[in-house]
Amino acid sequence: MGTQALVNDPFAVGTSVRIRPFMPPGHVRAPVYLRGKTGTIERAIAPFKNPEQLAYGLPAKEHMLYRVRFRAGDVWDKDAENPDDMIEAEIYAHWIEKMDQSHAA
C-alpha cells in the first residue's frame, strides 16, 4: 500500500498499543467496542485525511492509519467464543497510545 517506514514512527509493526478510551460525541471511526482495549500494530497503511474533520466539510489534517490486531479474549473477556480468534480494525494514530505510557486500566 505504498507504506513508507516513518522516521520516529511510534507505532512500529508488533508494538503493543491501547485504543484511547474516550467517548466524544460526533463522527468518529474508532468503534466503541475496541476503545480501551489492547492490541498490536499489524501494519501501517498510509496517511489519510482525518474523517472527524472531513465529515463536517472542514479542511482536514492527515493522520497515519494503522491496522490493529486484537485477541478476541482481550476484547470480549469470558464472552469470547474462542479467545484466540482475532479481530483487526483500522484505527487512526490519534486514537492509539503505546502501552508503556499506560494509564492504569
Binding site: 468503534p31 497503511i45 489519510f48 474523517p51 480468534d85 482475532m86 483487526e88 484505527i91
Partner: peptide, 8 residues
C-alpha cells in the same frame, strides 16, 4: 480473523 472495515 474478523476484519472490521472501520475506515478507508
Amino acid at each position: 480473523r474478523v476484519h472490521d472495515s472501520t475506515a478507508d
